[in-house]
């Protein structure tokens, strides 16, 4: 069950302020890293909502992100629609797509759920890959960014765009926290803990799962639209199952079911990847080993382990007082 503890709030604020400070000091390349980290963090956050709090391990979140990115790209680059309208429609589209995938996949469990989401994600990938109108293998260029000249923000510059990414990441976190604290979020936790019992209580389990998946698709959609605007280019690789796997890896490295953990994981991954890449091309090797060690060490992840140590120390101190 989700609680926005003081520890979570403090960590979140430090992370967001740190990213903001890096935008100011890190130069152009630093801003690119911040944008990349924010987009990955939003995707990981959306994975954590379903995986950490709903027990649904998804292998289709890359496809959800990619679908929103492609929808946005098609509307701005092909149809010439205004980016703001396209933004909304793209997110609605990924939400509906995720709800549908969640509704159908909710009939399966465990490893079969993973396989089902993989199948649907790959179907979206193949569909977009094979659509010549969308550029197929080559992808699609000429994606427009939002025009915020009216409020005096030049969105074509990297600093305002990076700040917008940080703001959207904060917004995504807020939405996810509100959802998980609501009655619906508690029901979702219940479904994760004991599906049969919730069903016996009269809860329509498949509909809870579908809606949670839809909400997750909304967050993945925001990440997708920002990804499309960032490079102003979309390619089918965005939808591949390996991106979904990478998002899951980020969640695990940061801490599954902690909501702050995915942010920690994404920021750590992007910056460590950048550091390792300057030494060796083989950074996947390190990520792979880190992943295996994390799971073998109990699977709490960076933030999860931190939270575990802090709460244990606090509990021990409380016991000593008593």
């Amino acid at each position: 069950m989700f609680h926005q503890t003081a520890l979570k709030s403090v960590t979140l604020v430090i992370l967001l302020l740190g990213l903001g400070a890096y935008v100011q000091t890190g130069g152009y390349y630093g801003r690119e890293l911040v944008i990349e980290a924010c987009i990955l963090a939003m995707l990981a956050l959306s994975v954590d909502v379903v995986a950490g709090y709903g027990g649904m391990i998804s292998m289709c979140h890359g496809a959800l992100l990619g679908a929103a990115a492609y929808a946005f790209a098609a509307m701005t680059a092909l149809l010439g629609w205004p980016p703001s309208l396209s933004f909304v429609i793209a997110i609605v589209a990924s939400t509906l797509l995720a709800t549908a995938i969640g509704a159908v996949s909710s009939r399966t469990q465990g490893i079969f759920f993973i396989m089902a989401t993989l199948a649907f994600g790959q179907m979206v990938y193949v569909m977009i890959f094979d659509a010549p109108m969308l550029g197929g293998d080559d992808g699609m260029a000429g994606v427009k960014r939002l025009n915020l000249d009216l409020v005096g923000i030049n969105f074509k510059k990297s600093a305002p765009f990076a700040f917008a990414c940080i703001a959207l990441l904060a917004l995504s976190y807020g939405l996810a926290a509100l959802m998980l604290r609501s009655g619906f979020g508690r029901t979702l936790s219940g479904v994760k803990a004991n599906e049969d019992r919730l069903r016996a209580l009269g809860v329509r389990v498949w509909w809870v799962k579908a809606r949670a998946f839809g909400f997750s698709g909304l967050l993945a959609g925001i990440a997708g639209v920002m990804a499309a605007q960032h490079t102003q280019f979309v390619s089918p690789e965005l939808l591949l199952w390996t991106l979904s796997g990478e998002a899951l890896v980020v969640v695990i490295l940061g801490g599954l079911g902690t909501l702050v953990g995915p942010l920690v994981g994404a920021i750590a991954l992007v910056f460590v990847k950048h550091e390792i890449s300057s030494v060796t091309h083989y950074w996947h090797l390190f990520i792979g080993i880190a992943l295996i060690l994390t799971v073998l060490a109990g699977g709490r992840g960076l933030y999860g382990q931190f939270e575990y140590v802090v709460t244990r120390a606090r509990r021990r101190r409380a016991k000593d007082h008593a």
Partner: peptide, 23 residues
């Protein structure tokens, strides 16, 4: 262990093997 941990560890192995082949 549960399926998720198996999936994750063997997914990590894919990363490790792929880079070892490259090396």
């Amino acid at each position: 262990a549960d399926h998720m941990n198996q999936v994750l560890v063997t997914f990590g192995l894919i990363f490790v093997f792929t880079d070892l082949f490259r090396i």
